[in-house]
Amino acid sequence: MSEVWIDKYRPKSFDEVLGQSAVVNRIRSYVEAGTIPNLLFHGREGVGKSTLVYLIAKGIYGGGFEDNLTEIDASDFFNRGKAYLEADPRFEHFYEKNKPVIETFKEVINEYASLMPIDADFKIIFFRNADALTLDAQQALRRMIERYNRTCRFIFTTKRPSKIIPPLRSRALNLYLGKIEDELIEEHLKKIMEKEGLTFDEKTLQTIISRASGSLGQAIYALQYYSLAGKLPEIRDDKIDELLSLSLSGDFVEVAKMIEALTADSGFTGYEVIDMIHDRITSGDRPLSKQLEEVILIMADFDMRIIEGANERIQLEALLSKISEV
């Protein structure tokens, strides 16, 4: 199987991180000082959240950073549950078939957090997809952060900051990673194409960039997919068309059900749903018979509300209601 390009071309230094200069500069200053606060990185998929965590660990610990970095995917831990715990050798020591997942979680974090760092002042526990942490897990972490603050730092990454309880958010420095500019994505994709010996027509390349909507990770994934399959990954315009039609007809019971399906079942974030709505109403393929400029301003307002931590589903329902009234 071909190597996954998202990993192959992951930035190896802070200088290689694209489009997040303000956040990078702040993080770099901490790393140069040899210490970091607890951190919560939030933003859409593919904008550099996990990459920054790895760069922090490498910057503080050097080549053997894995000794002091524990990574836990909260989505795997709580959504896959016992099947995941049973399969992962790291948890063999903790796993018991009849023990609740939350109890295993508490034991795992307590043990990892209590272990002394190796040739360092502190170790890092990194929670990927932190929005999947249950309320009980977040409450437990709230206490653990206080208990192990001298020898452990906690880093969270999430696409849905509204899913993180305020007491946990307040114990970490919250940093938002925004969309990456299309020009930067294009330049990066062309470098990958040159290294991989690829040549695409300009239209295909621009389609990849447009669909990525500021996500470098999604753009790289689509580029590799096209190189292997000769076509682009399918997108879900039909679902967004249906969502817009329902809102314009005033059927907000069904709108709520569709938002639930898109966010809970299909896993799209509020950012991504707004991006897809924006793409559809500005593409010309599915225009709204409304004042486009006013609609886009409304969308920008609701996008900011989600960034600031408001409930995503409620804000999406309110957004579509507003659009139907324009």
Results as ranks from 00 to 15, higher is better:
134 T>G: 15
207 T>M: 12
94 F>N: 11
137 A>I: 00
29 S>T: 13
96 E>P: 00
49 K>C: 09
96 E>M: 09
212 A>N: 09
143 R>V: 12
91 F>N: 04
139 Q>F: 15
194 E>D: 07
137 A>Y: 01
23 V>M: 02
227 S>M: 05
299 M>Y: 07
46 G>S: 12
15 D>V: 01
195 K>E: 14
319 L>W: 03
14 F>P: 02
184 L>V: 02
124 I>S: 03
183 E>R: 07
63 G>H: 13
47 V>H: 02
292 L>D: 09
159 K>L: 04
314 I>A: 12
215 S>F: 09
157 T>A: 15
8 K>R: 13
188 H>P: 00
142 R>H: 12
248 L>Y: 06
209 I>G: 08
240 I>C: 07
143 R>K: 12
270 G>W: 02
268 F>L: 15
217 G>W: 00
160 R>I: 03
103 E>R: 09
146 E>Y: 11
72 I>V: 13
174 N>E: 05
83 A>L: 10
156 F>D: 04
227 S>C: 10
217 G>I: 05
194 E>S: 06
13 S>P: 12
90 R>Q: 06
52 L>I: 15
181 E>V: 00
188 H>E: 08
75 S>A: 15
326 V>P: 01
7 D>P: 02
63 G>F: 10
70 T>W: 01
315 Q>I: 11
290 K>P: 11
74 A>D: 02
232 L>I: 10
309 G>E: 07
70 T>G: 05
169 R>N: 08
326 V>Y: 08
45 E>K: 11
213 S>V: 03
183 E>L: 14
183 E>I: 04
320 L>M: 14
110 N>H: 04
252 F>L: 08
143 R>M: 15
299 M>C: 09
204 T>F: 08
20 Q>E: 08
283 S>R: 15
302 F>W: 02
6 I>T: 13
178 G>R: 07
18 L>H: 13
115 L>H: 04
247 S>N: 08
279 D>E: 11
11 P>W: 01
94 F>G: 12
43 G>M: 07
86 E>I: 12
263 T>P: 05
138 Q>E: 12
266 S>K: 11
317 E>N: 07
184 L>N: 14
43 G>E: 04
14 F>K: 01
286 R>A: 13
258 M>I: 00
169 R>Y: 06
